[in-house]
Write a protein that binds this DNA or RNA. Structure first.
Lengths: 234, 234
DNA sequence: TTTTTTCTCCCCAATATTGGGGATTTTTTG
DNA sequence: CAAAAAATCCCCAATATTGGGGAGAAAAAA
């Protein structure tokens, strides 16, 4: 009896906040495991900040679910029958780029993480017995941030490092002006255009570029541009 | 009086857990702002899971601090006098690769994030009035994970995506030879070198490049190279 | 098989870049 | 403050690139 009363109060407070202000975050859940889906639904539904607009065991009708429930955040499992959560996310992002998608899964391997991120995931939560995490992640994502479970974050950082660390063997110091000029070169501007854009004489541009070439150990614009991009100098 | 008693109890419990089991995480803090350092120290010292082994306003003696206090986790500010937290972290990682370094700073720009990650940061916490976050981050890092503040995580994901996701707004068809020539241009080769490498005449290279420029709607090598890279045409 | 690309090559002339010398004035830094 | 670094400008000449034509052979597509 007390439980029912509590539930009714919770519901009332939800309806209230929906009517008074739209601060609750509309969430749609995709999760094929029935137990997990139901327990997660229950927890989310009891949260004050989350309005669970719908929960589904299958993402084939994901677009319809978006159209019908127009969620702010989608909580998406990866492994599901018929269509994977990542595929569903790609479809969703194509039509509704503003809907935030939070991946929740047991997979912690680089391949899944990589694919999810490339497909535009706004967060990646490893399945966790503690449901608080989900609400926290939803709130963070809704606020424009991203949520990564610690192990996922560690892997993302490791991938990130392996991508970039090798191509920064030596620190090259370019002056402010040199960076500016190099930035113009990357935009495909000619000496004349650069001189115009930076409000300096043609000959000055020439000088700067000579210095840049010497510092980067190159002797042509294309080389300098490539080096600038891969060293993230600009 | 009650406060002192509480403190003594906290201390006792700490000593106890130190003697009984080494579950407390040894932390060293670098933070130049006196107020922040002291309040953060106080909070960390009162935590049950963290043993604050030392706190410093300057990272010049970082290596000495590591040797003396052998921390598990270092909480490192970026902006400090004499030496930046990132430089200090690089030194620390070189000698003690197992020490986890958690960056805590006000900087949220891509450049600082990028440098910190490349230098091997295990986490990146934006300065936060809520000190709980720090303890949580320390625990996560100690457990082998990483902690990223939501805004930082969002930026990391965005950087990650921009690196790997191929944006091809207009599908541009380059022939095999054209791709080959463009590839050479990206490597910084001149017309003459390309002719040599592809075993074709200079004038042929010229022709191909003219065609490439027309297809890419550019009219200089740097532009073509940039476009080729960002379109992942090569 | 005919047509269309693709790849190959050539000419010429205008323009742009690169490399080699300088020099002067601010700014920054020790 | 004195020295170093950065930013600004100039000259000259060699080289490279770009843009405009055109044209033949080979490969691919219709």
């Amino acid at each position: 009896m007390v439980m029912i009363k509590t539930k009714v109060y919770t519901l009332l407070s939800k309806i209230n906040s929906l009517i008074n202000d739209k601060t609750m975050i509309r969430v749609v859940l995709f999760e094929d495991n029935k137990n997990l889906r139901e327990s997660l639904s229950m927890y989310l539904a009891s949260s004050d900040s989350v309005w669970l607009a719908g929960s589904f065991s299958d993402a084939r009708n994901a677009l319809w679910a978006m159209k019908t429930h127009h969620p702010d955040v989608v909580l998406m499992d990866i492994q599901m029958p018929h269509i994977t959560g990542i595929e569903a996310m790609i479809d969703i992002k194509k039509v509704y780029p503003n809907i935030k998608v939070l991946i929740q899964t047991v997979y912690e391997d680089e391949d899944h993480i990589f694919k999810a991120i490339c497909a535009g995931a706004n967060g990646y939560v490893v399945k966790n017995p503690n449901p608080e995490i989900y609400v926290q992640a939803i709130e963070e994502v809704q606020a424009g941030g991203s949520h990564l479970s610690p192990n996922i974050a560690a892997k993302v950082l490791a991938m990130f490092q392996s991508q970039f660390v090798r191509i920064q063997p030596t620190f090259i110091e370019l002056t402010q002006r040199e960076k500016e000029v190099l930035g113009c070169m990357v935009k495909g501007m000619s000496y004349k255009m650069i001189a115009d854009a930076c409000d300096i004489k043609f000959s000055t541009v020439h000088s700067h570029i000579k210095n840049i070439y010497e510092k980067l150990h190159v002797n042509s614009a294309p080389e300098a541009v490539v080096k600038a991009l891969e060293m993230r100098l600009i």
